[in-house]
Design a protein around this nucleic acid. Structure first.
Length: 225
DNA sequence: GTGCTTTCCTAATTTACTTCA
DNA sequence: CCTGAAGTAAATTAGGAAAGC
């Protein structure tokens, strides 16, 4: 026999039926397990409509709450149902009508409910991904801000040096070759990659190991004249 | 090509229900 | 034990895109 799910809890039910449903809410249970009651008995209109397939070849359905007073009762999926839906979602985040119908039949749900579940699941996935992306961008921003602060400081130091001791400044390693590797965060001197007898001031300031290889340069300062 | 309908989707919102202080 | 706030997830609504006729 076709089994009804939480739809059976609609307020259109006879008080006796509703009472039975309420009794199933054991205090320690978080979810109202399904199925509860035969669909035919509690939601005849909806069940008949689904059988007749009034909309779009019968793959869809309507009147989820089937409450005469307009109220809607909320379905809580069982753990097993959720697990099956999750598995299916991992396999394919969107369903074609055949998959939807098969899943609905397997779980004893209406295809509309399966459809809604997938819609909400996609929304949750997207929201979570957005949060992850946001966190990543925040970290990028912090890194760049810190790098900017460091470079500003370096510029100040170089300017000061140029003012105080122009001769020493002129004989420094050219700062134009300084590059920062984003992965290892080491500064290297491209002109002197094979020459490690003198690490430059920036290297020393950043604690760079001499001879370090910077594989992905991202910042090159223009040659000062 | 155009208009209409249907279907499916996303995004936003509502709402029933649960949890927890 | 009761209560209200907060969180969660099912369901609804509005609107857009694509496909078929």
């Amino acid at each position: 026999e076709d089994l009804g799910l939480s739809l059976s809890l609609s307020s259109s039910l006879a008080p006796r039926t509703h009472h039975v449903a309420m009794l199933l809410h054991a205090p320690e249970r978080r979810f109202l397990e399904m199925p509860l009651l035969p669909a035919k008995r509690v939601c005849e209109a909806s069940a008949d409509e689904e059988r007749s397939g009034q909309r779009g070849g019968g793959s869809d359905d309507d009147d989820g709450g089937c409450g005469m007073d307009g109220s809607r009762k909320k379905l809580r999926l069982s753990k097993d149902q959720s697990a099956v839906l999750e598995d299916s979602f991992r396999e394919h985040p969107t369903l074609n009508p055949r998959q939807k119908a098969a899943l609905a039949q397997q779980l004893g749900l209406r295809s509309r409910q399966v459809e809604v579940w997938f819609q909400n699941r996609r929304a949750r996935t997207k929201l979570k991904q957005t949060e992850v992306d946001c966190e990543f961008l925040k970290r990028c921003c912090e890194t760049l801000t810190e790098e900017n602060r460091r470079l500003q400081k370096e510029v100040q130091e170089l300017r000061a040096l140029k003012l105080v001791s122009p001769h020493q400044y002129m004989h420094m390693s050219p700062p134009t070759t300084l590059t920062m590797c984003p992965s290892c965060e080491r500064v290297s001197n491209n002109n002197n990659n094979n020459n490690n007898n003198s690490s430059n001031a920036a290297d020393r300031r950043n604690g760079v190991v001499e001879g370090a290889i910077c594989h992905r340069p991202i910042a090159v300062r223009p040659q000062q004249s």
